[in-house]
Each structure stands twice: as C-alpha cells, then as structure tokens.
Design a protein around this nucleic acid. Structure first.
Length: 440
DNA sequence: TCTGGGGTCCTAGGACCC
DNA sequence: TCTGGGGTCCTAGGACCC
C-alpha cells in the first residue's frame, strides 16, 4: 500500500492514549526540584523499586529490584517511600488538563488516560496530530515532567503508539499505517494479549502482532474468547472498545495481601498476618462507607501455590473482628501443619453501601452500630497517631513482627514472641483492641 | 519471570427449575 | 420412574491489566 500524506480524514475516530513517564518518580522530582537529574527510586517502604526515574533506568535499575542491589549499581540513588496522596493529586491535575480539550476522557489508571478527540479539528482549527502535540505540551509544561502519547483509530492502536517511543514520545498511527507498526511488535506487546495467549499463538506460528491481525476472523472466533476477538478487530483498525468516561460509582472488591520474609510454618503467626490484612481491608471499606457480604481468605505457600476458602457473612459488614471471627472458623480448612507460607491475603466482595443506622433497634443491629462507632473511633485515632496505633489482638504477632523489623532491621525471635502473643491474645480475646508502644 | 500488591472481566459447568 | 430439552443463576478459576 503506497504511503499517503497524513490526511485529516484518516481518523474515523481519533483516540489518544497518554502515559506519564516514570510517573511516581517524576512526581517526586516535580515536587522537589533538587531531585531533577538524579536517580530517584520509589518503593522504599517495601524494600523494592516500585518506580524509577530515567536517570535510574539508565544505570540499570529495573522494577522490583531490591534496594540492596540498587545500592551496588547506583550508590547515589535517592530512595523514597511511596506517597500515593501526592501521586493521586498530580494524577487529578493530569486528567483536568486533558479535559480542557474533551470531556471524553477515561481515567484508565493513576498514570494513564484515554481521550477521544474526534470532532475537535474544526473548533480548534488544528488537525488531530497538532491537537495531540498541544495536549502533550500542556502536560509537560504544567506538571513539570514528560508524558508519552499515541494517537490512533482506537484504544489498542493508541496504546501501541504511546509505548512506541519513551520517554516524551508522541507517535501517530493512522489506519493505513497500522500494519507497519504491528510488523515490528510481538503479540505479547499488545494490550490485552498476555503470556498465555501469546504462547498459544506462537505454537500456531503467529509471532508478530501483524501475523495475528492477518489471521482470518473465523479462525479467531473459533479459538479465542471475546476479549481477544475484540483486540483482533482493533488491530485491524476497527473502533471496538468504548471509552469508559463515567466515574466509577463504587468498586467491586477490596483486597489486601502481604508477603512476609522468611516464610513461616507457625499457625498463630500466619493467622495474625491474615488478621492484619483483614483489618486493613476493613479500613479501606470504611473509608468508602462500604460493607462486604462475602470474603475469600487465602494463604500463599512457599512454592507460590495458593490455598483459599470463601465465606459468606451473616450480614454486610466492615467490622474486622466479625470477619476475623469467620476467618478463624475456617482457618483449619486451609492451613496445613508443616507447610511453609510466604503470604496471606483477603478479598472482600459483594460490596454494598454500609447502611447500619441507629434506627435499627434489634439486638444484632445495636451491636453492629456500636461496633461501627467503635471502629470509626479507631480510624480517627490511627489517623492522628499513625497507622496501627490501635489494632486487633489477633493481629498482635504480625504487628510485633513488622515493628521489630522496622526498629532493628533483623529477624525477631519468633518462639518467644509467639508465646507472649498467644497468652496476650487469649487473655484479651479476638475482638479486643491493643495499642502499640509507639502510638499512645 | 526466581516472582509485590490491587484490581476487572469472561466462561465453563453445576445446581435448580419448568 | 425415566427421559428430553431449555432457561437462569451462581461459582470457580483463568487471564489480563497497571
């Protein structure tokens, strides 16, 4: 197909995907200009790199690398704990700037959005590529760090574009040029095609994204589920995946997972980790005034396999002691003595608005109201004195463990802690609250 | 891939009903 | 009592995303 000059008619739909470059690290550099030009790494609180500036990437720092490794290859690295409040604030400003051009904006993640700029040529007296240049320039200038963008006839192609050149790239892919880009990308580079699908495609001798796009539709429909079929149609230039521009009114689930090192075989220690995750999940629930009517509790074994169990609650709740009680009932069904575990987790779902009101005057409801008030008080205290100033007795071991790690950086003597924690836990009982020494 | 944490959506198959 | 057919709802698990 001969190349034609960019035509203003080349975009039946003009979809822009914009991606903040090294977003968390860039936010830190924007907030503190002294960090500009330096290798900045966020994720200090977890001990692994969550995001790293391009200066750090140039030195070989990669995602999830341990801080100790990073120090070796990059001794002047600046480590910072993740500060999601700041990142969310800058993320909002990012969306606001894009919304000056169109209301058709999908907030895809904290550092990415899609914008439908179809129909803006006349009012702005610019062609689509120029509009894309303008939006990107506004973002770079007003936020103080760079963004990468892609313009295409749909979301999938726009994403190919924004990933094409980073950082600070802008790649425009009109429909009649799609094949040239896809020829240089493997299937697994395409949004929506993961390792399973691309391994299968490889067996079918489909290697590049173009190979896949050129497969007949019947073949695709026969072999793949709906999401992959939709991706296939978008790779062929169709606009299939709509932008989700409405505010999400509520989420479907809340999950808390935590890995601990070294792995543990001790039942009460593992349970206290689960208990702490339940507390954290409930804190998030209460923040959004939600209650869950179901939950899944799971343990991650040392070999990375999971054992989990699902439970229904007698009523929608955001009360950790209630949920910990349910978890306790089922714990023996998932905990195998002698097995080493490396993480625990909880997912709470079937969420609804928390409607516990004082109007309900029957026994269980009164208790629910009182517990809700109690834990709202706990939230306030923790807000003032720091996270986990007050926590459930059942989370004692987990809190003791992380406090110890934080204070001394080495491993606790679990046996003695276990004995101490167990007597305390028994004495206090599960719904009891405890205060850490650092708190109050 | 020597592996952290938080989500969403889709589908096959079973339970139950008519 | 057995058999056929069809619909809906639910659940478990897989796959993918950032």
């Amino acid at each position: 197909m001969p190349d034609r000059p960019l035509s203003i008619n080349s975009f039946p739909r003009a979809i822009l995907h914009i991606d903040g470059d090294a977003f968390f690290a860039s936010c830190e550099q924007a907030r503190d200009p002294r960090l500009k030009g330096r290798p900045v790494i966020t994720g200090k609180e977890r001990g692994i790199a969550a995001s790293m500036s391009y200066e750090a990437k140039a030195r070989g720092v990669t995602r999830a690398m341990r801080l100790s490794e990073i120090k070796k290859i990059c001794p002047d690295a600046v480590f910072l704990p993740s500060d999601y409040e700041t990142y969310s604030l800058l993320s909002k400003r990012f969306y606001e700037i894009v919304r000056r051009y169109t209301s058709e904006v999908e907030e895809y993640s904290i550092d990415e959005c899609f914008a439908d700029i179809t129909g803006l040529r006349r009012p702005l007296r610019m062609n689509y590529p120029k509009i894309a240049v303008r939006i990107k320039a506004d973002l770079d200038r007003e936020l103080g760090f760079t963004f990468s963008a892609g313009l295409g006839p749909n979301k999938t192609i726009a994403k190919v574009g924004s990933k094409w050149k980073k950082p600070s790239g802008l790649t425009i892919i009109p429909g009649y040029h799609i094949h040239q880009y896809l020829a240089e990308r493997y299937t697994e580079d395409i949004w929506g095609i993961g390792p399973q699908t691309s391994a299968y495609l490889k067996k079918e001798k489909v290697n590049t994204a173009l190979d896949f796009a050129r497969k007949p539709e019947d073949w695709v429909r026969e072999k793949f589920p709906k999401p992959i079929q939709e991706t296939w149609r978008e790779l062929n230039g169709k606009f299939v995946l709509a932008l989700e521009t409405k505010e999400k009114e509520s989420q479907a689930s809340v999950q808390k997972v935590r890995t601990f090192t070294p792995p543990s075989k001790e039942k009460e220690f593992v349970f206290s980790q689960l208990s702490k995750n339940i507390e954290n999940a409930c804190i998030k629930l209460r923040r959004y005034n939600l209650a869950a009517s179901r939950g899944e509790f799971f343990l991650k074994k040392q070999n990375f396999r999971y054992a989990g169990i699902e439970a229904r609650f007698s009523r929608p709740t955001a009360i950790p002691s209630d949920i910990v009680g349910v978890a306790r009932t089922h714990f023996d069904e998932i905990f195998e003595p002698g097995t080493s575990y490396r993480a625990t987790g909880v997912t709470l779902f079937k969420l609804s608005e928390d409607k516990v009101k004082q109007m309900d005057l029957f026994g269980e409801a009164i208790r629910a109201v009182e517990l809700k008030r109690l834990f709202e008080g706990v939230d306030r205290v923790n807000g003032r004195f720091g996270k986990h100033s007050i926590f459930l007795g059942s989370s004692f071991l987990a809190n003791k463990f992380s406090q110890h790690l934080g204070a001394r950086g080495d491993l606790p003597k679990r046996k003695s802690l276990l004995a101490k924690g167990e007597t305390k836990r028994k004495r206090l009982g599960i719904p009891m609250l405890m205060a850490s020494q650092s708190g109050i």
